[in-house]
C-alpha cells in the first residue's frame, strides 16, 4: 500500500515536471517567434512568399527574432519596420525583403543584374519578368547595415512597402526585427 502510494506520488511529480517543461518550451518557442500577418497584396517577395500568403486566408507566418545582427546571411528574407512620418499604417510600414549585401560589400545594379563586390550574382530564383532594367553604381554597405532587395523589382510606387534599398538606401540592422526564411 505504502509502495503504491509512493509510486502514485512519483508519477504525479513526473506529470507536473512534464507539463512544466512542455509549457516552458512552448513559451520559449512562442516568444522567440513573431507571428506576422503578411497581407496577400504584399507581392514584393513574389513568387517565393506569394503562395504562402495566398493559401492561408489570414496569411499568418512565423519569423524568428533576430538576436544577433551578425547572424544575417545572403539570401535571408527579413522583416523590418521603416517608420515614415507620412505613412501611419502599420501594415504599410512592415517590410519584407531579401539580404543581398552585408557590411563591407559593394552593391551595384547593371541592366537589372546584381553586382556584388564587382562580380555578377546568380539570381535564378527571380523570374525574368520580375527584374527591372535599371542601372545603379556600386555603393559600399556601411557598418551595421545591409542591402535589401525585393524579389519583385519592377514595381515601385503606390505602396510604401514596395520600396527597398534602391529607394531607402542601405538598411540599418537596428530596424530589422527578424528572419522569415532562408533560401
Amino acid at each position: 500500500m505504502k509502495e503504491g502510494q509512493r509510486k502514485k506520488e512519483i508519477m504525479l511529480y513526473v506529470q507536473i515536471a512534464v507539463v512544466f517543461i512542455v509549457t516552458n518550451t512552448a513559451i520559449i518557442l512562442w516568444s522567440s517567434y513573431d507571428w506576422l500577418g503578411i497581407p496577400a497584396k504584399h507581392s514584393q517577395m513574389s513568387p517565393s512568399y506569394e503562395e504562402f500568403a495566398v493559401h492561408i486566408a489570414s496569411s499568418v507566418s512565423a519569423g524568428q527574432h533576430l538576436d544577433y545582427v551578425d547572424s544575417l546571411e545572403y539570401g535571408d528574407v527579413v522583416y523590418y519596420v521603416f517608420e515614415s512620418v507620412f505613412v501611419k499604417s502599420d501594415k504599410e510600414n512592415l517590410f519584407f525583403s531579401r539580404v543581398v549585401g552585408l557590411p563591407g560589400d559593394t552593391i551595384g545594379i547593371q541592366d537589372g543584374k546584381l553586382i556584388r563586390n564587382g562580380s555578377l550574382v546568380d539570381q535564378s530564383y527571380i523570374p525574368q519578368p520580375n527584374l527591372s532594367d535599371e542601372n545603379l553604381p556600386e555603393v559600399l554597405i556601411p557598418r551595421d547595415h545591409v542591402y535589401l532587395l525585393n524579389d519583385k523589382r519592377n514595381i515601385v510606387g503606390k505602396y510604401f512597402f514596395l520600396s527597398d534599398s534602391r529607394h531607402l538606401g542601405p538598411i540599418s540592422m537596428f530596424v530589422i526585427k527578424g528572419v522569415l526564411g532562408r533560401d
Partner: peptide, 9 residues
C-alpha cells in the same frame, strides 16, 4: 523611379 517611391511615402 525614386520619385515614384517618394510619391508612395
Amino acid at each position: 523611379t525614386f520619385s515614384k517611391h517618394l510619391y508612395s511615402e
